[in-house]
């Protein structure tokens, strides 16, 4: 294979053409249509007139919707933070596991990925609902304790259909997104750097915060990004696990397209969400540029 890709233009075009056409037809074109809708208004029941108005965007940042945007960002941030807090020790443990255990642990992390989100969410409902496994377990313990002291009747905990359930569900769903980039960053780390830190007299905690975390920063940044973005646009989890006050922006958008039948407004909100995502990516890219030496 002496020829470079640049010289073999025909091969290049043949390989790249079909996917490009696919993307243009089924991703860019619909996106452009939705983008155009966002500058329009409903004209009768089924028609949308594209009038170039910014009214939909103005409405999208009205306090009512802005609050939901902010709440979504807050929920996504909390989810990301919890994923980081749980995922970092997990990734660290996998890095230092034996080669054989590593494969199995990574498989365990990946396994939920290969299970349908709907099934996983319903499984979580089965765990959390009033007659669910958690409450059953607590009731059993309660009754056991009642033998020794009069405690009265067991009151099941309200675990489902609230913000707690949404955060729990989001952390559960997004944990692999956090663990995998963290693991790949930590695994690349030269282990002799850790030994050098110990050798110079540092304890394990100092080594963790002065050597491991700074060197894993690029991995932490990409973990945060690819956890935060899907969490921000989460739809199914708040829909099924959340209560009346835990709707996120994706649920509001869905309502515009379906029940409210206000496609232009739904389109505008979708694009506000997309712009937020772009901003998050830009911030990450800027941070990555600032610490080039930490990447290797």
């Amino acid at each position: 294979m002496e020829q470079s890709w640049k010289q073999a233009k025909a091969v290049f075009a043949a390989a790249l053409g079909p996917p490009l056409v696919w993307l243009a037809l089924f991703f860019l074109a619909p996106l452009a249509i939705v983008w155009a809708y966002s500058f329009g208004h409903n004209d009768g029941l089924t028609e949308i007139a594209i009038s170039g108005t910014f009214g939909n965007y103005a409405r999208a940042i009205e306090p009512l919707y802005l609050k939901i945007f902010l709440k979504s960002a807050w929920v996504a941030a909390l989810t990301t933070g919890l994923c980081l807090a749980v995922g970092f020790p997990v990734a660290l443990a996998i890095t230092f596991a034996s080669d054989k255990a590593k494969t199995w642990l990574l498989l365990l992390i990946m396994l939920p990925f290969w299970t349908n989100l709907l099934i996983r969410t319903y499984a979580l409902i089965a765990v959390l609902r009033t007659e669910g496994y958690v409450n059953q377990g607590f009731e059993w313990l309660w009754n056991l304790a009642s033998v020794f002291a009069p405690l009265g009747d067991f009151q099941p905990l309200q675990l489902l259909h609230n913000n707690f359930a949404v955060i729990l569900g989001l952390v559960y769903v997004h944990l692999p997104f956090m663990v995998l980039p963290l693991y790949s960053a930590l695994d690349r780390l030269d282990k002799s750097l850790l030994e050098a830190s110990l050798d110079l007299g540092a304890g394990h905690l100092r080594t963790l915060f002065k050597v491991v975390v700074p060197l894993a920063l690029p991995g932490i940044a990409s973990g945060i990004l690819i956890t935060f973005i899907p969490a921000l646009g989460a739809y199914l989890t708040p829909d099924l696990l959340g209560g009346p006050d835990s709707q996120m922006i994706a649920n509001v958008i869905e309502r515009q397209f379906k029940r409210a039948n206000d496609w232009p407004f739904g389109a505008a909100m979708s694009f506000v969400l997309m712009y937020l995502t772009f901003i998050a990516i830009a911030i990450q890219a800027l941070l990555a540029k600032k610490t080039p030496e930490a990447r290797g």
Binding site: S192, L193, A196, S197, D199, E293, G296
Partner: peptide
């Protein structure tokens, strides 16, 4: 444990901390 021994090591890969300056590397211990 290694951090309580009166010995120090020069590693084969040098293991110089890449994220801090030369002076900070030397000052680490």
């Amino acid at each position: 444990p290694p951090n309580r021994r009166p010995v120090n090591m020069v590693f084969q890969s040098y293991a110089v901390f890449p994220h801090i300056s030369v002076a900070d590397n030397v000052a680490y211990g």
